[in-house]
Amino acid sequence: MKNVLITGGAGFIGSNLALKLLKKGFTITVLDNLSEQIHGVNPEKNSPLLRSIENKVTFIKGCVTSRNDWMEALKNQDVVVHLAAETGTGQSMYEIEKYNSVNIGGTALMLDILANTKHSVKKVVVASSRAIYGEGRYLVPSTGQYVYPEARMEEQMLKGDFNVSTHGIHELLKLVPTDEQSKIHPTSVYGITKQVQEQMVMLVCKSINIAAVAFRYQNVYGPGQSLSNPYTGILSIFSSLIKSGKSINIFEDGEESRDFVFIDDVVDATILGIEMDEANNEVFNVGTGVPINVLTVVKSLINCYGASVGYKVSGNFRLGDIRHNYADLTKIGSRLGFQPKVQFEEGIKEFANWVNKQNVSLGDSYEQSIDEMKNKGMYK
Rank of each mutant, 00 (worst) to 15 (best):
D161N: 10
A127C: 09
E135S: 08
L172G: 12
V164F: 07
H170Y: 13
V164S: 03
P141T: 06
E150K: 08
G160Y: 11
Q145D: 11
L172R: 13
I132H: 07
V164W: 12
A127E: 00
I132V: 15
G168A: 02
P149W: 05
F162S: 04
V140H: 00
H170V: 07
V124Y: 05
V164D: 00
F162E: 03
K122P: 01
P141S: 03
P141I: 01
R152N: 14
E150N: 11
K122I: 07
A151L: 15
Y138P: 00
G136I: 04
V121A: 03
P149C: 05
K159D: 14
I169A: 09
T143M: 03
V140G: 00
Q145I: 03
A131P: 04
A151C: 05
I169G: 09
Y146R: 01
K174W: 09
L139C: 01
R130L: 13
G144H: 05
E171V: 02
A151G: 13
F162N: 10
I169E: 09
S142C: 05
D161H: 04
P149N: 06
S120L: 01
V121C: 04
M153W: 08
H167F: 07
A131M: 04
K122N: 10
V121G: 01
R152L: 13
K174F: 06
K159Y: 06
G168R: 07
E150V: 12
V126I: 13
D161W: 06
L173I: 06
A131L: 05
Y138N: 06
A131C: 13
G136M: 05
R137E: 15
F162T: 03
P141E: 02
R130K: 13
K159G: 14
G134L: 08
H170T: 10
E171F: 00
E171R: 02
K174E: 15
S129T: 11
D161T: 05
